[in-house]
Amino acid sequence: MIVVKTKEEIEIMRQSALVVSKTLGMLAKEIKPGVTTLQLDKMAEEFIRAQGAVPGFLGLYDCPSTLLCSVNEAVVHGLPTNTPLKNGDIVSVDCGALMNGFYGDHAYTFEIGEVLPETKKLIEVTKESLYVGIRELKVGNRVGDVGYAIQKYCENHGYGVVRELVGHGLGRKMHEDPEMPNYGKRGRGKKFIEGMVVAIEPMINGGTHRVKQLKDGWTIVTLDGKPSVHFEHDIAIVDGKPELLSTFAYVHEALDIKSDEENEFRNQFTVNS
């Protein structure tokens, strides 16, 4: 069942999402060669608690960490480790926070030093596909419209779209209806209505779409060992169209990235909120 949010609840959710946005921005300054994902995990937990929130992943489904850090061929759900990040790696950092009864949940893929040009292109296309999908999140469209748009965009670049893992509704629970696949057919699936809040999260592989789970019971990796990229935003349908609750502005500020990619989905947010 889809749980529709009031405008007041959406504003509360915006604050939860911004805790995650600020956490990712803080981490952006720390992610460099020699740092371990366990160190990042500790930083994130301390930062989230200092914002008056609690880590959204820690303990959820018995998750042992605040962050899920997926390096190189890891797609998602990578557990933090003591292995130092090195030049040329990529790491997808997925983070959640619970505040005032609502969750925020989004992710960003970071480059460590100088990455291969083909990896940089995969990152670029995956990030672009996130906004391609978000444009389809409007009253009257359906789940399949978002999935189709992401799938078509990424497959046209020769990449594999993961099937086993999907985006989701978001609210008082981390995972609500509807499921939001990154593949699909236009006009299929549940219809979008005013007040829906979802997390759209393309998980795109540099080669095959096929994946497997490691023995740790969490980490999902590409079957062919090629890199995978993950970006995620929280979005509400407000006045019939998509409005971002999360932002990459704090990451962009930390990394000195100039971008206007979020402007069309932003009604009232500024980076200093």
Rank of each mutant, 00 (worst) to 15 (best):
residue 4 V to H: 15
residue 10 I to H: 11
residue 11 E to P: 01
residue 13 M to W: 04
residue 14 R to A: 05
residue 15 Q to P: 00
residue 15 Q to Y: 06
residue 16 S to A: 15
residue 16 S to P: 01
residue 21 S to Y: 03
residue 27 L to C: 03
residue 27 L to S: 01
residue 41 D to L: 05
residue 43 M to I: 13
residue 43 M to H: 07
residue 47 F to V: 01
residue 49 R to M: 11
residue 53 A to F: 02
residue 56 G to H: 02
residue 62 D to H: 11
residue 63 C to E: 13
residue 76 V to N: 09
residue 78 G to K: 05
residue 78 G to V: 06
residue 81 T to P: 07
residue 81 T to F: 10
residue 92 S to P: 04
residue 93 V to K: 03
residue 98 L to K: 11
residue 99 M to L: 14
residue 102 F to S: 09
residue 104 G to Q: 05
residue 111 E to H: 14
residue 112 I to A: 13
residue 113 G to S: 13
residue 114 E to Q: 15
residue 117 P to T: 14
residue 117 P to L: 15
residue 119 T to H: 13
residue 120 K to M: 10
residue 121 K to G: 05
residue 140 G to S: 08
residue 145 D to K: 06
residue 146 V to E: 06
residue 146 V to M: 11
residue 149 A to R: 03
residue 151 Q to R: 12
residue 152 K to H: 14
residue 154 C to N: 10
residue 160 G to I: 00
residue 162 V to T: 11
residue 164 E to K: 08
residue 165 L to M: 13
residue 167 G to K: 02
residue 170 L to R: 04
residue 171 G to T: 02
residue 171 G to S: 06
residue 186 R to M: 10
residue 188 R to Q: 10
residue 188 R to K: 14
residue 196 M to T: 04
residue 198 V to T: 04
residue 199 A to E: 13
residue 205 N to T: 10
residue 206 G to L: 03
residue 216 D to H: 13
residue 219 T to M: 08
residue 221 V to M: 09
residue 224 D to Y: 14
residue 227 P to W: 05
residue 230 H to E: 10
residue 230 H to F: 13
residue 231 F to V: 11
residue 231 F to M: 14
residue 234 D to M: 08
residue 234 D to N: 15
residue 237 I to A: 08
residue 247 T to Y: 00
residue 253 E to R: 13
residue 253 E to A: 12
residue 258 K to Q: 09
residue 263 N to Y: 08
residue 266 R to I: 01
residue 269 F to V: 03
residue 270 T to Y: 06
